[in-house]
Design a protein around this nucleic acid. Structure first.
Lengths: 147, 147
DNA sequence: GGATCAGGTGGGAAATAGTGGGAAATAATA
DNA sequence: TATTATTTCCCACTATTTCCCACCTGATCC
């Protein structure tokens, strides 16, 4: 697996299935993915290996006895589910997760190097719009980066 | 690879293909390029090596768990895709990126020494027009520079 | 001037990707 | 147990992408 990148727009069908873009599929190790609730209203999809690493790190830092830890566990760890990519290259997204991300029909699929995000197209548009100035500010700060 | 420079005007065809000017092509190391969303409504094209450097620097500073980092990742890293230059010297620009830059038919291709920008011709004209005074101000600040 | 070449453009055909929907299997409900 | 939903598997249609070839135009050369 190299880098998962690219922004794509596919449609969720009536049965809750969404095609993963072939370009991303090609980079995945197998036909299994772990899906969970992301931060900002999107879903995160990880290749099993990456998920193992991430979930292990999350668990390390957490304890039953801290409110914050429980929150992280409930919000990130608990909703996670393993999904299989079907022969047509689609995943069936569980209803609870669809609702969480407000997925409607038009979805945006983002490859973010090591994992994938799924957004409702309209929600993503809004997110970008609302954060445009924040982005520009962040970009200015990157000013030091040179090619 | 020497310096990529020059301003060119080519047309995007119905299939979303755009010829890279031969002058620029000649300076590229291979037939692979990485495109991504630029800042301001244009696309950036990098030779793979340059992109590797830049994306590595961006990734360094980022984490899943910081809002700003996610924004940078989504806006710059995620939309990136590797493209192949075909036998006729064209690249096929993915739809999401075409839309982002508002590419229509007439495109402007700018060689900016280490990378290339692609603009919709009309959008570029507007950009220059709207930023003329800003440009003049910036030029003043350079005042000290001598030949 | 006519031939040749290179850069840019367009389009057909084949292959691939995305989408929708039926039927069987499984689960849920009464 | 009968009935209704939901999920899974599979097939079929359509759109998009890819690959290849042909054409046009302007520059260069003989």
């Amino acid at each position: 697996m190299e880098l998962l990148t690219g922004e794509f727009r596919n449609t969720l069908d009536e049965k809750g299935r969404l095609s993963l873009p072939a370009k991303l599929r090609g980079e995945l190790p197998g036909n299994l993915l772990v899906v969970t609730q992301g931060i900002d209203s999107c879903l995160w999809l990880f290749p099993p290996e990456q998920w193992k690493t991430l979930s292990a790190k999350l668990l390390e830092q957490t304890s039953l006895f801290h409110a914050r830890a429980r929150l992280i566990q409930r919000r990130i760890l608990a909703p996670s589910q393993e999904l299989e990519v079907d022969k047509a290259g689609r995943i069936a997204i569980p209803q609870a997760l669809r609702e969480f991300a407000g997925l409607n029909k038009e979805c945006v699929i983002l490859g973010i190097t090591k994992y994938i995000e799924i957004w409702d197209a309209e929600a993503y548009r809004k997110y970008l719009e609302e954060n445009e100035s924040e982005f520009l500010a962040a970009a200015e700060e990157l000013g030091g980066l040179t090619l």
